[in-house]
Design a protein around this nucleic acid. Structure first.
Lengths: 360, 360
DNA sequence: GGCGGGTTCCAAACCGTTTTGCATAATGGG
DNA sequence: CCCATTATGCAAAACGGTTTGGAACCCGCC
């Protein structure tokens, strides 16, 4: 390698020399950590301007032992849920003068570990950790034990004592159940996400528990699990609907899955919501744009992101405590759910309720 | 600030002391830059293991003058196009041992400049720059002049001589035009993205140029511009359709806009593609999931991302040259386009073509 | 005129690595 | 047995900043 490519950037030494002062002085006028003479200050500033000097942040980081960087570990950037989260975090971060080091793990545990190690080796001041796999992560555990600034976001890590920000998943599941129940659905199916994920368990259990309490427990074979993806939802949805044509509604553990279910339903000639209601989770921005617009349980994504960052900063500048924040979900009713056909027919006959027109 | 929070990480000095060798030796066994005795090596490695030593990457960076980091500047992470691009870049990056420093600019020129400055101050080895504004960026120009490793991605910067990777936008526009023309559309509208963006110009011009050549030039007032967002598309679409109800098809400069147009059409009681065909650009993953599935011009997103990274690496390790790579687009026909009603009626009467059922 | 106090500035140590030049020990050949 | 090598390991100088402890100077006051 030839080297010689570097623009041989100007150092603080160059500035000092050009301004005829010591390095120390330059540093002080730049940082303001100590008062400097009016005259020298202007001279230094002028030289800085003229030479277009910018302090080397890595040298600064080494000396000051802070990098103004936080690491982000996320499982799947293609799931629109995560970009929304990243966006919220980014806003907070930039506002606080921090940058984000991005690590996409593709839900691979090995990558997760590697990234985590690398991030701390790079001396990020903290890590916001979003997992996509249920596999235990020893590195994460060590970090938590050492009280390394860390906040778990979105997907809880069982057994880990560390600060975290989550949605009220169980509550969300209940909301979904109540909604479908009230519409009159008695034969419902559930499509969960990856097995072992706490959020999936909570959502599914919240849903099932409500149906059970209402007197119509969801039989085990009507609950299936798949990946958090459109494809997964489609496959699982097709299977479920084929085995249980009597189903009038399906609750999906996230919006991507719900999208897949809608496609599967269409494939099988079942209209949504006419012959099948579909309910999602997350309220990703595209949820309002699909056909039909998806009824879904909204997570307060922006607040989750900013809260996560806030918590992280709290740790960075002092007090580590394993706060566990849960933010409320809320049902967003759109066009993918409607009363089941039987009920519809009845109420239409009674002239009470016209068939609902799905619309924003 | 109490400090004392740092886990007081173990340094190379600690390892050296514990292993009873010099710092140099430790460094050498770890890097393999010089041969070391079998015995010492094992001893050092054992200590490293035991102390769980990880070299401080920022110190390493300072000493070696490389950070194994590249900066990413992108205008809008909420537009699913960019996460897809980021994903592709990330894959290449991680494979090459690099990490990504993420800068979301919200299409703000001031933020762009700031981020760029910060990234080079942080000594990223290169920058992949995606712009969302037409405003000139002096920092960018300086960097390009200095031959700082840089590749412009997706959105060209007029007047800048720097390596770049783009889609064949003009060609894409032509493809869109040809498609609509062949379906029989003669009254078409165009909704461009932000004014001044080269990609927008190219797409729109490619489209218009084709229609002109075919003998049905698009009148100026049927072309409007808006932001790259669903909302923008909806507003612009509503306005356009209100002023020009005679339109039978609309070409949108990206998928988000197209989604908005579809919503606007629905608002106005026009079915898609029944009474209005809509054609997008990008082929974002959600394009296949909206209703109706969007016919769109696909950009080779993955290839654009990996090619951008490849180009960047080329610069990092040596040769700067302002290569300009253009990747081909391709029309993906889905359900949002169909022959205009008039034509449909005719051909249906002629019994030639049954109304097309939009489907995947 | 000496002295306390406030300004300004600088020298030097440090942050945690890499890397070069050299010293020493071990090895082998003549 | 001695010398030329080769194998090993160390000390010290970077890398580009921050920060602390003083030194030098100026001021006004008693």
């Amino acid at each position: 390698m030839q080297n010689g490519l570097e623009p041989a950037s100007v150092t603080i030494r160059d500035v000092a020399r050009a301004a005829g002062v010591s390095i120390t002085t330059v540093s002080h006028v730049l940082s303001g950590h100590r008062p400097t003479g009016e005259l020298t200050r202007h001279r230094v500033l002028a030289v800085v301007e003229q030479l277009n000097y910018r302090p080397n942040r890595v040298a600064q980081s080494l000396a000051t032992r802070h990098t103004r960087t936080v690491g982000l570990i996320l499982p799947d950037i293609l799931n629109p849920f995560f970009p929304q989260l990243v966006h919220a975090i980014e806003r907070s971060a930039i506002h606080a003068g921090y940058r984000l080091l991005l690590c996409h793990t593709d839900s691979l545990e090995s990558l997760e570990r590697e990234c985590l190690e690398d991030l701390v080796a790079r001396r990020v001041e903290g890590v916001i950790y979003m997992r996509g796999t249920a596999a235990p992560n020893p590195v994460l555990e060590r970090l938590a034990e050492e009280h390394f600034p860390l906040v778990v976001l979105d997907e809880e890590v069982p057994g880990l004592v560390a600060p975290g920000v989550y949605a009220m998943n169980r509550l969300g599941g209940r909301m979904a159940a109540r909604h479908l129940w009230q519409l009159g659905h008695r034969d419902v199916g559930v499509i969960g996400g990856p097995r072992g994920l706490v959020s999936v368990c909570d959502r599914v259990q919240g849903f099932q528990e409500t149906y059970r309490r209402l007197g119509a427990p969801v039989p085990e074979e009507r609950t299936v699990f798949t990946g958090f993806s459109v494809h997964g939802g489609q496959e699982a949805g097709r299977g479920l609907l084929l085995r249980h044509p009597e189903l009038t509604a399906v609750f999906a553990a996230n919006d991507l899955i719900a999208f897949g279910v809608i496609q599967a339903a269409r494939e099988l000639g079942r209209s949504v919501p006419g012959s099948l209601s579909v309910l999602g989770f997350d309220d990703v921005t595209t949820a309002a744009m699909v056909d039909p617009p998806l009824t879904t349980v909204r997570q307060p994504i922006r607040r989750m992101g900013s809260e996560a960052f806030r918590l992280l900063m709290g740790q960075v500048r002092g007090t580590w405590e394993p706060v566990r924040r849960q933010l409320p979900t809320r049902l967003v009713e759109r066009g993918s759910t409607a009363p089941p056909e039987r009920v519809r027919a009845v109420s239409a006959a009674g002239g009470a309720t016209p068939p609902r027109s799905p619309g924003a």
